[in-house]
């Protein structure tokens, strides 16, 4: 995988995450689940920021950033707060793995950013209840 391909893959993942967290936020209640709602809102903002950064990184390499899809399959039911958190855990694990790949396929300032993004994703995993891992982003 070339560095640009890895960046495009991470961007595609962030497009999906932004879309899905928008849906998860809409499925939760700010008044009835304030903690969950705040967590979803904060995570949505983090993924939007990552998406924007990746868009810039791809553009600066003279490539067209991959566009978001119109819609994404939600990886699980979202009827209850527990189900919403379970979906968030799945999203974060996938994003964390994607950033692991990005670290492997980049160098210099792009890798520096990827390492930081991997850290942030690993921390978000914990916030949504993913069990601690010895090696987040691998396997």
């Amino acid at each position: 995988m070339t560095p640009v391909q890895a960046l495009q893959k991470a961007l595609a993942a962030e497009h999906a995450a932004v879309h899905l967290y928008g849906l998860l936020g809409a499925q939760s209640s700010k008044s009835r689940q304030p903690v969950l709602f705040a967590k979803l809102e904060q995570t949505y903002d983090a993924h939007r920021a990552a998406r924007d950064r990746l868009t810039v990184l791809v553009s600066t390499k003279g490539r067209d950033p991959v566009a978001a899809k119109v819609d994404y399959v939600v990886p699980g039911p979202t009827s209850t707060p527990a189900q919403i958190e379970a979906v968030a855990r799945r999203i974060e694990r996938r994003v964390t793995r994607t950033y692991g790949e990005l670290v492997a396929n980049t160098s210099g300032s792009d890798r520096r950013w990827a390492i930081s993004a991997l850290d942030s994703a690993a921390a978000r995993e914990v916030a949504f209840g993913v069990p601690l891992s010895h090696f987040p982003g691998i396997g």
Partner: peptide
């Protein structure tokens, strides 16, 4: 090595989780 960089970064991310 990109794969080794991933391993080291993953170890760091493990510490972040703790």
């Amino acid at each position: 090595s990109g794969d080794f960089a991933r391993l080291l970064a993953s170890m760091g991310a493990g510490i972040t989780q703790r």
